[in-house]
Design a protein around this nucleic acid. Structure first.
Lengths: 353, 353
DNA sequence: TTGAAAGCGCTAACAG
DNA sequence: CTGTTAGCGCTTTCAA
């Protein structure tokens, strides 16, 4: 009677394709085939291999696969400023789309610095199959250069020659202008974001055109940093430029304006109506709740990744026109009919009190 | 006179270590050494190599390096719900720390699902050198299991045997209780988050202890989803359980409560004082501005990565006690002295009106 | 349909 | 200090 020895402990390092091959009694190349081109292998052999792999707990090592093929199953998402709430839903959409396609997502934050952005890009470049560049702070030519090395989608910016994905800013700006017009406002003040921002440019231009069509006046203030602090600063400046209708570059700026204005006794929306852009999470939280031009944030991230994967898988990236996603005006409490009784002044309301 | 031919166009594939070796007139291994162990190579040879590499635009291929060494220079950060604003600053902190150490960060969102979390983990595992698991929804044993395969830091949760990083919830809860006591409140209602949440458990326990020490009563309501909608639902239930002091599991819940209560005519803080946890971006935006127990969010992410890299680089992960980061109470406008004239009731204020 | 063999780009002994 | 030689685990011709 032989004493049954327990099987030797499994080796600490994960099983390789060779282990599976031995267990299944086939050559390593056959195992490889069984996983990559299941059609090209005898059905029952394939079954045997699958069983062996299962039993050993084999998982193909993505790094090793990547070396000969270049297919790493990774994409990079580079974001100009991850602190900006605008990106939260975008990231989630991107991550979900990537995961669904079996891809892993590398995330890098450029902290608003083109230098850091370059570095992050360089670090990620050799490892990933493609890149989503969100609101890049780099020059068009630098972007085009990089786009030659890897499939790339530019988000929130149109770069000629590089597949781009943007939201329908012209329509959004027009809807904002119409809304102001409906409420009886005559002049719209645009509070601008960063000059380097492509979105800022197009929002301002679109507003001006729409306003002209509607017979409204426009003014422009800025640029400001596109965050709450920037908005508070803008509020300070607005005190010297009374107005009844404000369109802000983005929600954060709008929120800052509301806070700054409220602090000096101006009442939103009674004294000034304000519209933002993006419909970030906090837009619905501030008092008064912010009317804003909403973008389909999650879809934006998802579509970016989706399009990127399509290109990676050989889709002809046709026409250089950017893909544009729709926007819509979400009417909340920060806008109201223009009141002739009141006008914004440094001290706050004019007639009341 | 010879016609100068332009140099042949550089090959389309990036230069390898061999190209550099040839150009510098040395063996490939020497090039490798020059990059990894600069000390072990003749100074002027090293210089020659560096020059050649520079000229060719050589960059070591991280994938190829990873295969023999296992050093991928990547870490994974897995987050239970990337939509939760709580993580924004944490992510930024983590990303910055990783970048500074020359590491690249893989980000995965589990979307509150333990299944998706597992999948993300499995996908990332073979590729990364270490893992930060934030507010995992997996079981302790599953976490311990995975921690055996790769260095790991658990965030916001204490798992015996696995290096953990948490915030000082007991101190935060105590400060909240003291604050309520100072304002004359006698009973504190805790509005609970997810049962699966480790943080929820400790916050409630800590509150109860602190309250007992201070001679206050406590009640508990919940669990609720830890988001604004959950808070609004809680507000609906609170209407039947009048109280003057609420400590919410987190800021999102607190914000939802404020909105729900305000909607039915209850005035915060006059009728009810509310304190949240985490000090997310929006806490300062809502009206009234939310008093909350602040955690050093960015430091949390940074420290997690920092500790993880230390372990990766061979630091003995000593004692199994979790590292704890300090918390502090940020007093804003959602708390005030308890008024005997008023009490929260379904219809809103009692005496006034 | 399957196996053998070469190699992806880099590193790590081991000699010299 | 430097060159030679094996691989890391997988894919991919090329034959059989």
């Amino acid at each position: 009677m032989t004493v049954e020895r327990p099987p030797p402990p499994p080796p600490s390092r994960p099983p390789t394709i060779y282990d599976v091959a031995k267990a299944a009694g086939v050559a390593a190349s056959t195992v490889s085939r069984a996983f990559s081109r299941p059609g090209r292998v005898n059905a029952e052999t394939a079954e045997r291999i699958r069983a062996a792999a299962q039993a050993l707990g084999y998982r193909t090592n993505p790094l090793a696969r990547a070396l000969p093929t270049g297919r790493t199953s990774m994409i990079a998402v580079i974001i100009s400023d991850i602190t900006n709430p605008f990106y939260f839903e975008i990231i989630r959409g991107a991550q979900a789309a990537a995961a669904e396609a079996g891809y892993t997502m590398l995330l890098a934050d450029a902290q608003e610095s083109d230098v850091l952005e370059r570095e992050a890009l360089d670090r990620a470049l050799p490892t990933v199959e493609g890149i989503v560049l969100a609101s890049s702070r780099m020059s068009d030519s630098a972007i085009r250069m990089t786009a030659k090395q890897r499939p790339m989608i530019v988000l929130n910016r149109a770069v000629a020659g590089v597949p781009s994905l943007v939201t329908d800013n012209p329509h959004g700006a027009r809807r904002a202008a119409e809304h102001f017009a409906d409420l009886g406002h005559r002049t719209i003040t645009y509070v601008a974001g960063p000059e380097a921002s492509w979105a800022d440019g197009i929002r301002w231009r679109s507003l001006r055109e729409a306003a002209a069509d509607l017979g409204l006046q426009t003014r422009r203030l800025g640029p400001y940093k596109p965050n709450v602090a920037g908005g508070e600063q803008a509020a300070g400046d607005l005190v010297h430029k009374p107005t009844t209708a404000i369109l802000a570059y983005n929600d954060q700026l709008a929120i800052g304006i509301i806070r700054g204005l409220t602090a000096v006794g101006t009442v939103v929306p009674d004294d000034v109506s304000i519209i933002g852009f993006d419909n970030i999470f906090a837009a619905d939280l501030i008092t008064p709740r912010l009317t804003t031009v909403a973008a389909p944030l999650r879809a934006l991230g998802g579509t970016a990744v989706h399009n990127l994967l399509a290109i990676i898988n050989g889709a002809r990236s046709r026409a250089s026109d950017p893909t544009v996603l729709p926007t819509r005006l979400v009417e909340r409490a920060s806008t109201t009919r223009r009141s002739r009784r009141r006008a914004m002044t440094p001290a706050g309301r004019t007639s009341a009190n």
